[in-house]
């Protein structure tokens, strides 16, 4: 029996990977629902390894490229690409972003408006990352927990984990010395006037923004990265910057309703890459930072390889992600 502490993104992804390989798994979760206490519910849900490479190590691509197929078997993945734009005066940001990333093509104003008609006439230049995708994090957590339970995994909600578990996926609650919190803030807008179908990134030296469509006129916006352990509500400064950036993306957002705001603490190691570490007989998967949905599949596979070495052959993995 494999025991997992935490039914957040990492815990559920590992439970899924282990159960698929035939293991009996029990997951302990303090909250009442999948991901209830998880920072993943505030995530953008972007599967954007090439964009993320702008400020992350190459592993985001090598590990992240497995995420598309893995998630497509669990939940709805919208593979519509990412469109990156910048205001005219910040064109240098676009040049820099293009230099630091790959798998994109330059698009002019006409192509931008062909991709997203709502942006017609607003931006003269952009980058299109055709291979990228997005998903709805909360739906993905629900779908993942349903899949996991179909495979016979028991999730004990409202139940603290025993003193010793096989695998600890408790995020910031884990007793790992090098782990630090990086605060992120987000808002959900409701705006039926604008139709935007893919992830947009607005580059700006001080307030970069990403916007992910959630369907039904809902849009998630986010982008703050603050070295802080404070989990208080989103600050006025951050919220006003996010909202101003959304307005800069399209003035049509002026009439949007702000239906939700949120703030969460992303666990990170000094390299800002996840780690699988063993400490006192327990395996820890942690440090997913801002790459939870992107890197959880690959890290869950690594955790399963470690715990069930007899199933770790590449053929098996190929079958899994095909």
């Amino acid at each position: 029996m494999i025991t997992i502490a935490g039914a957040g993104l990492a815990g559920l992804a590992c439970a899924y990977e282990l159960a698929q390989r035939g293991a009996a798994v029990t997951v302990y979760e303090r909250g009442k629902a999948p991901g209830a206490g998880s920072v993943a519910r505030f995530a953008g849900g972007m599967l954007a390894p090439w964009c993320e490479r702008e400020s992350a190590e190459a592993e985001v691509i090598t590990l992240g490229s497995r995420a598309f197929g893995w998630w497509a078997k669990v939940t709805t993945v919208h593979r519509r690409g990412t469109l990156v734009v910048a205001p005219a005066r910040d064109r240098a940001e676009l040049t820099r972003f293009a230099r630091r990333t790959s798998s994109h093509r330059s698009v002019d104003g006409a192509e931008i408006s062909a991709l997203e008609p709502a942006l017609a006439g607003r931006f003269a230049q952009g980058l299109f990352f055709e291979g990228e995708a997005h998903l709805d994090p909360r739906r993905a957590l629900r779908d993942l927990s349903a899949k996991v339970q179909e495979l016979g995994v028991e999730i004990r909600y409202g139940s603290p984990a025993p003193a010793r578990v096989t695998l600890d996926c408790t995020g910031m609650a884990a007793p790992l010395p090098a782990l630090r919190p990086v605060r992120g803030e987000m808002a959900i807008l409701h705006c039926t006037e604008l139709e935007i179908r893919r992830t947009l990134r607005l580059l700006h030296p001080r307030m970069p923004l990403y916007l992910v469509p959630r369907g039904d006129g809902h849009f998630m916006i986010g982008g703050t990265m603050i070295e802080s352990s404070s989990d208080r509500a989103v600050t006025l400064r951050s919220l006003s910057e996010l909202l101003s950036a959304a307005f800069a993306l399209h003035p049509g957002f002026a009439e949007a309703g702000v239906v939700e705001t949120g703030a969460g603490l992303r666990p990170a190691f000094p390299e800002n890459l996840p780690r699988l570490t063993e400490q006192d007989g327990t395996l820890y998967l942690n440090g997913l930072y801002r790459h939870g949905f992107l890197l959880a599949p690959a890290m869950a596979q690594q955790a399963a390889d470690h715990l069930l070495p007899e199933t770790s052959d590449e053929d098996h993995r190929e079958r899994q992600t095909a």
């Binding site: 992350a56 190590e57 630090r180 802080s228 404070s230 990170a268 000094p270 390299e271 800002n272």
Partner: peptide, 28 residues
């Protein structure tokens, strides 16, 4: 990009002084 990259840069520069922003939101 990360604290690890920052530490590496500080080391390879041989700097003795690094400046840290104390934004009000983290002043607590």
């Amino acid at each position: 990009p990360s604290p690890a990259v920052l530490a590496e840069a500080a080391k390879s520069s041989g700097t003795e002084i690094i400046t840290v922003s104390l934004r009000r939101e983290t002043a607590d």
